[in-house]
Write a protein that binds this DNA or RNA. Structure first.
Lengths: 252, 252
DNA sequence: ATATTAAATGTACTTTTTACACTTATTTTT
DNA sequence: AAAAATAAGTGTAAAAAGTACATTTAATAT
């Protein structure tokens, strides 16, 4: 039974049509792993699961899955994301393919890593707790299996790089947010502080923000005005270069 | 014999240790394909080969190969590149993993695409003509097999994007080059023209160029001074943001 | 000697970025 | 009820970067 599965169905074709070259090649397991970022208004977080199977059972891991015969990577990543969070239409981008022969000690497995940005509040509404998933502050995450820490590092870099030029961080925010919250997010990601007058001016100059009438009173006595994202402009300007960051050098 | 090859060696482990999950997964062919860019002083070119095996035998294709059991993607890409061009230490960067189930009509094959930048003159010295490889002007390339044209498009975009901020295009130039040549390259890649005074000022401000005593007399009567790349600074500043391009908007 | 060609070079103007400090709204404390 | 505390909100001047633009120069060809 397992043996039958082991022989790829395409091989039938290989034997009927003459296709000598393809026959001799080794086939590999291919997985998709997702680096899922969330923001709770204060700090950047990472969604991790406790691995359910050996090896390394019980250790923390990115959320991943083997790719299925009929699905491509995007579909696989979306499936994983939907299973875990119940969310659809999440921001998702291919990060990198990882392929060191020994990255999985059991059997060589190629992993195509994706990173996702989600509004953590949406998640909380949709939560599916079947998987023992947990949010960890990015600066205080546990050890991860295999090369998953390397993946997270690369994803953080990529996120920083993109955020320096594109308004990508809005993907992490709830529908209504304040400018101080937004600044907080930028400061967390770039691990620095910005002058709030200059930051506000720069953000406003993008014209992506629509001021609301009400204020957030949770975080200060005076209260900070809520803003919403102008989705039309956001979609149109996503690829424009906005130079969010004062000295983008050494971002890499 | 072919059958024996067909069963991945790791499977032995799977049967001795209990590892139920891994068993049921389908394995896939994994290839590396290289988008190889070259610059001849006038225009940007692409190195293509005529495919040697069915299907689509004789059609033009990117240079690629199935990945071997013991090599990772970088090693595979370097192997391909070295086989084709005889060159080592070539600039190489992972572009994207392509995984549509039907991208290869014979059997599902994952392709991890890399793009390479090479000094075309070095190539000519090292040329290995076993493979029927040929340079095509990027604007006048033939139809390619499978999804290779999509790969090339993505590589062009990536190259443009990177070149807008990082001094990556020096990888395409010979050791000695002139400022007008460099400008030519930038203009070709961004498909526009720049003011030569401003361009020269911007390039010089990077301090990456070391003026030589001799001139290139091939392309003008007056001759243009040769420059060399300051490799120390280049290595140190590669990740700095240099803002080479006047209006980097809509580069994507 | 003259014409031709492409290379090299400077300046004034505009836009963007940066540095920097006080006032305001509201709640908490006394 | 007044005073203190807290974080939000806002403007201006100086510096740096980016842009637009035209003439001179070196060498060869006529």
């Amino acid at each position: 039974m397992a043996k039958k599965h082991q022989i790829p169905f395409q091989e039938v074709k290989l034997f009927s049509i003459a296709m000598p070259k393809y026959q001799k090649q080794t086939r590999f397991l291919v997985a998709v792993d997702c680096i899922i970022f969330g923001f709770d208004g204060t700090e950047l977080k990472l969604l991790l699961v406790q691995r359910g199977l050996e090896p390394e059972k019980g250790k923390w891991s990115l959320i991943g899955s083997f790719i299925r015969e009929e699905e491509d990577f995007e579909k696989g990543a979306n499936r994983i994301l939907n299973d875990m969070t119940g969310l659809e239409g999440v921001y998702l981008e291919q990060l990198h393919a990882f392929g060191k022969p020994d990255r999985d000690p059991i059997e060589r497995t190629i992993s195509v890593a994706y990173f996702a940005l989600i509004d953590i509040h949406q998640y909380e509404r949709q939560l599916n707790d079947d998987y023992h998933a947990e949010w960890f502050p990015i600066k205080d995450a546990p050890r991860l299996i295999f090369d998953h820490e390397q993946m997270v590092e690369m994803a953080k870099k990529r996120l920083r790089y993109k955020a320096a030029f594109h308004p990508i961080l809005f993907e992490l925010l709830p529908e209504k947010f304040t400018v101080p919250q937004l600044q907080n997010l930028y400061e967390g990601i770039f691990d620095t502080v910005f002058d709030k007058r200059n930051f506000s001016r720069k953000i406003q100059s993008t014209k992506l923000l629509v001021k609301q009438k009400d204020k957030d009173k949770e975080n200060s006595k005076k209260g900070a005005y809520y803003y919403k994202l102008d989705k039309r402009r956001y979609a149109a300007n996503f690829h424009a270069f906005l130079n969010f960051i004062p000295n983008p050098d050494n971002i890499k």
